[in-house]
Each structure stands twice: as C-alpha cells, then as structure tokens.
C-alpha cells in the first residue's frame, strides 16, 4: 500500500480573516464596543467632573486617584473629557452611516434593477464624486459652509453613499439575472414586490458589512477633521480635537493625547473585528 502526498491546496479553515481563533472571540468585540458606547452615552451621568470645569491648581497632572486619566493644560479632567468626547464621533458616525445607507441602497436598487439612463446617471454621479479625495472634499465643504456636527454628518454621508451604492448595485445586477427573479416576474409580481420579496433580503448581509466599514471610516474622518481643527470646535470635547490639543504637551503630559487616541483605537478595532466577522459570515453563506 502506498500513500501519495497530495498536491498542496489549503483546506479552508474557519478562522477570521486576521486569525483570531479564540473561543468566544466572536463576542468580545461587540461586547467591548457596546461597553464603550454605553459609557459615552451615559457620560453626563458617570463622568466624575464637568468636562469644562477647570481646576487651576492642578494643571498637567498625571494619572492619579482623583483624576484617573490626569488633567490637561487648563486643569480639566481628562477622563471626563474622554467620556464626553465620544459623543461627537458616535453621533457623526451613526448619523452619517444611516443617511449614506438609505441613499446608497435606494440608489443601488434603482440603478441595478431599473437600469438604463437612471443607472448611467447615478453611476456617473458616484464616479464624479470619487474624483475628489474624501478628506480634501470635506475640507473644502467645511471651509465654505462652516464646521459643526450637522455639516460633518452631511459631508461624510455624501462621501460614503457610493460605497453602499456600488455594492448594492452590483449585487442587484447579478441577482436580477438569476432565474428565480425572472420566474417571479413570470409569476406576475410587480417589480416593487419582487424587490421586496427577493432582492432586498439578500442585500442585508452585504449592507451589514458595508455599514460597519462605513462606520469606521466615518469615525476616522470625523476624528481627522477635528484633529486638523476643521471639525468639531472647542470647547466641545471631542477625541480627535483632544489628541491635537495634547500634541504640544506630548513630552510633558502624554496622557492628554494618548487616552482619547486609545479610545479611538478601541472603537475602530472593535468595529473592524465586527466587520470582518460579518464579512466572513456572509461569504460563507453564499456558498
């Protein structure tokens, strides 16, 4: 009897893209993210100090029992500011994703299913919008129309809708050709019914993934713009802005920049893990 070693193709193993194989690792990211969101939402209740309150006797103090994250250059408690500072990123993140989702999905369905001129127009619109890099466009818009939460949400949503649009459109195009959609047409359903019954349900897994990616991108964009001084303005607490405030004090008081930065890191990391997990789930079910 002889055994032939077979040609080397990898078995598909069921691991997350980035290789986390811990049991329960699936739940870790959503749990942490939920915790952070909860903390931020409850910040008015749980923050030990008022984020604008200045203690002029204790400037630039490092982490201590009274101030877990230390104080900044005008004596404000960094922990409280970190808690409050999560509000703008989350509002902007969630708000812009919702708007972009609705716009992008509607456009994608109409373009993919209706086709023709509408598809061409929408596609061109998305393309043209892609011709200005995101951050640059945001800078321009905010420069002209002024900074502020609603403007931020608006511009980031506008920047993000093509993502959902493309994914949905491509999916609808491929599904539309499938026999079961044609069969439904033959059965006598109206287009609207077909969209509702057959097409939309299958886009939901895809949208879960794009929504997560969009969220990461939105938070990053908001933080970046606030860092540059063009997003959220002082004295409102905001993670990106706080990181920038701490840059000059980096050698003396690293905690001013590092803690808000870590908060951003944690949120983004969790969002990323969740997105990966969702992406893996949706591609497996396709097979």
């Amino acid at each position: 009897m002889t055994i032939i070693p077979s040609s080397r193709q990898e078995k598909r193993r069921n691991t997350l893209r980035f290789g986390l194989r811990l049991p329960g690792a699936d739940l870790l990211a959503p749990a942490v993210l939920a915790l952070v969101i909860l903390a931020v939402v409850l910040s008015p209740l749980i923050a030990p100090y008022d984020p604008a309150e200045q203690d002029l006797l204790r400037l630039l103090e490092g982490p201590s029992v009274d101030h877990w994250f230390g104080t900044d250059i005008i004596g404000r408690d960094v922990l409280s500011r970190v808690l409050w500072g999560g509000i703008p990123p989350l509002i902007v993140g969630v708000g812009s994703v919702l708007i972009a989702l609705v716009l992008g999905t509607a456009a994608g369905v109409v373009a993919g299913y209706g086709g023709g001129v509408v598809d061409g127009v929408l596609g061109r619109l998305a393309d043209i919008q892609m011709s200005i890099p995101g951050l640059v466009l945001a800078l321009l818009v905010l420069a002209i129309f002024g900074a502020g939460v609603s403007n931020l949400i608006f511009i980031i949503a506008i920047e993000s809708w093509p993502l959902h649009f493309r994914v949905v459109r491509s999916h609808v195009l491929s599904v539309r050709k499938l026999a079961y959609v044609e069969a439904a047409e033959l059965a006598g359903h109206t287009r609207f019914q077909i969209v509702r019954r057959h097409i939309l349900p299958s886009t939901l897994p895809l949208l879960a993934v794009t929504a997560t990616v969009n969220f990461s991108h939105a938070v990053l964009a908001e933080a970046g713009l606030s860092f540059l001084g063009i997003g959220i303005q002082p004295p409102t607490a905001d993670w990106g802005m706080m990181v920038s405030e701490g840059q000059t004090q980096l050698s003396a008081a690293w905690w001013i920049s590092v803690f808000p930065g870590l908060a951003l890191f944690v949120v983004l990391l969790c969002a990323q893990l969740i997105g990966d997990w969702l992406a893996q789930r949706t591609s497996v079910t396709k097979e």
Binding site: I3, S7, Q9, K11
Partner: peptide, 18 residues
Amino acid sequence: LSIAGLTPAAARVRFSHL
C-alpha cells in the same frame, strides 16, 4: 486525478501498484 497526483489536500490516496 489520483494517477496524476493532482488530488485535493483533503484526499488520501492509496494503491497497491502504480
């Protein structure tokens, strides 16, 4: 595929003579 040695990794191939 077995004769050519092109079977997938999950396959175990045995024979008494080839």
